[in-house]
Computed example of a mutant assay.
Amino acid sequence: MSTRDRPFRQVDVFPGSALGGNPVAVVLDAAGLGDEAMRSFARWTNLSETTFVLPPSVPGADYRLRIFTPAEELPFAGHPTLGSAHAFAEHTGTAGDRLVQECGVGLVPLRRTDGGWAFAAPELRRSGPATDEEVARIAEGLGIGAWDVLAAEWVDNGPGWVVAVLRDADAVLELQPDLGRMRYPTGVVGPFPAGGPADFEVRAFVPGLGVDEDPVTGSLNAGIATWFFASGRATGGYTVRQGTRVGADGLVRVTQEADGVWIAGATRTVLAGTAAL
């Protein structure tokens, strides 16, 4: 198939400082691209995710989004959702404060925030406590004892997340996971003491999807927030720092509102041009 130049953006998402977030590659006007072309470009960018913006196929959506890691296609992912909304609005000149994204989990509402965008957390596909056997496997992959996991919960909103709560942020940062033994896409969260850089530290490991450690992860934070608010582990809102161990400086803002759980972060175009696809 012949190639053509397609509008392209690379957007930094959730940065707590300049270039501190998670980049996403966004191909705008992806109509006519086949699956293999999308997969090949996602492998080539070698980012956590690459997205492709298509015309919507259902009423009420502004655009349809396909999301690829270097290894797999995902039905939903958070930082690509925010980065793609930013790129779409910038490319099309959309001035409104609301967008609706169509993707593999259905319709995802988005809204502008100060300096970025926020998405409404989608419903969990799988929830509930991990079994003792699953906790043992989670701990094995994280390189810790099962007794170090204070709680573990399935919070799958697309990528397959299970999350482990550790005693504090330092325990999260000290992890040296054994990725070869990791059975599930695994998130880890621990609280900071009062006055810390955020309320929680989070890390995300997804070696099975071609991403050993994700710098900053919207879907995981959405899943954690859904669990934390429903269980009373958090109320109102909180902040998350993520990416510390991989050289990022991510900042995620989480709120519980009348219309759902919202995950917000800064978004900034770093590269703009065309991709020959």
Rank of each mutant, 00 (worst) to 15 (best):
L74V: 12
V58Y: 02
W227K: 02
A136V: 10
H79T: 14
R6D: 15
Q256T: 11
L271K: 03
A30M: 14
N46G: 14
G106D: 05
A272Y: 03
V58H: 01
H79F: 08
R183P: 03
T81P: 05
A71P: 00
Y184C: 02
L271T: 05
H91R: 07
L166G: 01
G210S: 02
Q101F: 05
R233Q: 14
F52P: 05
A264G: 14
V108Y: 01
W161G: 07
N46S: 15
A61T: 08
G180W: 00
G265V: 15
V100R: 04
L54P: 01
W147F: 11
G143R: 08
G143Y: 14
S84K: 02
R203T: 11
V24Y: 00
P177V: 12
A225H: 06
G218Y: 07
L107A: 09
R111V: 13
E36V: 13
V149N: 00
G273N: 04
G128H: 03
P23S: 12
L33D: 05
D249T: 15
R111E: 10
V135A: 11
W117D: 12
G116C: 04
E123G: 14
L110E: 06
D5C: 10
I138V: 11
T94E: 10
V58F: 05
D212I: 13
L251N: 03
G190A: 07
A152G: 09
T50I: 13
R66E: 06
P185A: 08
A89K: 02
R9T: 08
N22E: 03
S2G: 08
R137Q: 09
R4E: 15
